[in-house]
């Protein structure tokens, strides 16, 4: 963010506690000192208001970055994200663009209960006029956020609170930009394709590790971009592995995994040796109790079990 704010004076950050508090999750640490209160704007707790304000400013050509303390609170502002940001370019016949970034932590954190633990991937990926990305590694976070800030369209950047605490290598290049719509093959394999994004990439990698010990080589794909979706990379992978399993933190009904399954069936039906499948978050509001929370979210063991079933391998300890 700091690099992009140095690069373009029209870029500014606004949200709750982004300035003097240095960010609820310290993402904006140091920005107020460097750029001052004009460009690092502490807002009242008023999501609908400041999201609308930022969209209005973006209509004039400014490039706001709106931080939601968590994406759960974006529900207060979703009217502006869809009706003001996503649709205005189309409704104006191409006259008015809305170059804006909506970012913040998305999905389940740890033990914060149902209202603070929801995955909005499929919600925003549903809507034309938006671009949606979900970084996993720190390099993803840098490259995708820079691409989002430089993009002339509204972009939703779904970060993850649990990933904020993990360490990855980051390229130093201030122009390290990852293109939208390109998935990353994190690990190559020939037996099954595991598709995931955000924190679920780690879950898929852990499952792949278990599977490897059993002789199943999984190809793990980090989707990175949810809209546009890099279906070509998935199709190519399925042509090699003939099986695909999507790991989605969010609810299964009308989710992104369902969309991926539909597109794979449309595009690669003849290559499939098993139905396209998915491991999703349980179809319940997220519980608080530690054991129930763990049961509600995809775990490496459940992903490995689903992969084994698709590969017609007996389950661990089974007959």
């Amino acid at each position: 963010m700091a690099e992009e704010m140095r690069r373009d004076p029209d870029v500014f950050l606004m949200g709750e506690e982004v300035g003097q508090y240095q960010g609820a999750y310290k993402i904006s640490q140091g920005l107020l000192d460097e750029f001052g209160p004009k460009r690092v704007v502490d807002t009242p707790i008023t999501e609908m208001g400041f999201t609308g304000l930022a969209c209005g400013a973006a209509f004039t050509g400014l490039k706001p970055i709106v931080e939601f303390m968590t994406f759960n609170f974006s529900l207060q502002a979703i009217d502006h994200i869809l009706n003001s940001a996503a649709k205005t370019r189309y409704m104006s016949g191409g006259q008015l663009s809305c170059p804006i970034v909506f970012r913040g932590p998305n999905g389940a954190a740890a033990r914060v209960g149902a209202q603070h633990s929801q995955d909005f991937s499929s919600w925003y990926a549903h809507c034309p006029g938006l671009k949606v990305v979900a970084p996993w590694s720190a390099a993803d976070a840098k490259g995708l956020l820079k691409a989002a800030i430089r993009d002339p369209n509204p972009v939703v950047v779904l970060e993850n609170e649990l990933l904020y605490g993990q360490t990855f290598d980051v390229p130093d290049d201030p122009d390290f930009v990852l293109p939208f719509g390109q998935a990353e093959i994190v690990q190559s394999g020939r037996d099954i394709t595991l598709v995931a994004w955000s924190r679920m990439v780690q879950v898929a990698l852990d499952a792949a590790q278990t599977l490897k010990a059993e002789g199943i080589e999984a190809e793990v794909i980090n989707l990175r971009s949810l809209r546009p979706l890099d279906i070509d990379t998935l199709v190519t992978s399925v042509q090699k592995t003939n099986r695909i399993l999507t790991v989605e933190e969010g609810w299964p009904v009308a989710g992104l995994a369902a969309e991926i399954a539909a597109q794979i069936v449309e595009r690669a039906f003849d290559w499939l040796d098993a139905p396209p499948s998915r491991v999703c978050g349980a179809d319940v509001p997220l519980p608080y109790a530690a054991n129930l929370e763990q049961l509600a979210l995809p775990q490496p063991a459940t992903v490995a079990a689903a992969a084994r079933a698709l590969c017609n391998r007996p389950s661990e300890g089974g007959a």
Partner: peptide
């Protein structure tokens, strides 16, 4: 009502 926060965004841009 949606035009109201959008409108103060126009004001924000004038000030910016």
């Amino acid at each position: 009502g949606a035009q109201v926060p959008l409108g103060i965004g126009l004001g924000f841009a004038h000030q910016y």
